[in-house]
Write a protein that binds this DNA or RNA. Structure first.
Length: 166
DNA sequence: ATAAAGGCCACCC
DNA sequence: GGGTGGCCTTTAT
């Protein structure tokens, strides 16, 4: 059985720089703040990558609408990672949690460090809001695309009205 | 099978 | 403030 292709496009967001968006079977399979398709390799080891702006553009544009569709995700990953990522979806815009909050939320209060690692492997940045998870001491913490970008995202989310990702 | 490496945290100075 | 040991999953030997 052959693997489904990943159709990808690289776009530019005014505020956050390049955004790489990957589709698999018409669902969002990857979203990252990068212009490097190889960033998708660890998630989709053997799928063919096909550059296709036309296919991916509507999904990119939807990101900046009022209600971007949050449901159509194509997921890889282990059960543990799914549990973690699913917990992240429940963190509303403008709020934050600590890594240990998330660990508690999935019923694994002591797996804090593993939670951090799993969050770092979140394949769908922004829509699965991994940037809303901070150190328990309030520090910004790390981010796959750089702590500076994480901080920027959070600063934007403090605005009452915004056109950024919901 | 085993080891090493993580987007952590509570605890100790 | 800065180390350090423990915790748990994933990935690489």
């Amino acid at each position: 059985m052959t693997k489904s292709s990943i159709y990808y496009g690289i776009f530019n967001s005014d505020d956050y720089g390049p955004i790489l968006l990957g589709l698999c079977e018409e669902k969002i399979a990857f979203l990252g703040l990068t212009d490097a398709p190889r960033e998708m390799r660890s998630h989709y080891k053997t799928n063919p990558f096909i550059h296709n702006i036309e296919k991916t553009r509507p999904f990119f544009e939807a990101l900046f609408k009022e209600k971007p569709l949050k449901t159509d995700f194509f997921f890889t990953g282990t059960k543990f990672q799914h549990d973690v990522w699913k917990a992240l979806e429940g963190i509303p815009r403008g709020e934050t949690r600590s890594y240990s909050d998330v660990a508690r939320a999935i019923g694994r209060p002591r797996a804090v460090r593993a939670v951090g690692t799993a969050i770092g492997h979140n394949p769908i940045s922004l829509l699965i809001p991994c940037h809303r998870v901070l150190y328990s001491n309030g520090a910004i913490g790390n981010y796959r695309w750089g702590s500076a970008l994480k901080k920027k995202l959070l600063d934007y989310e403090k605005r009452p009205i915004s056109t950024v990702v919901q």
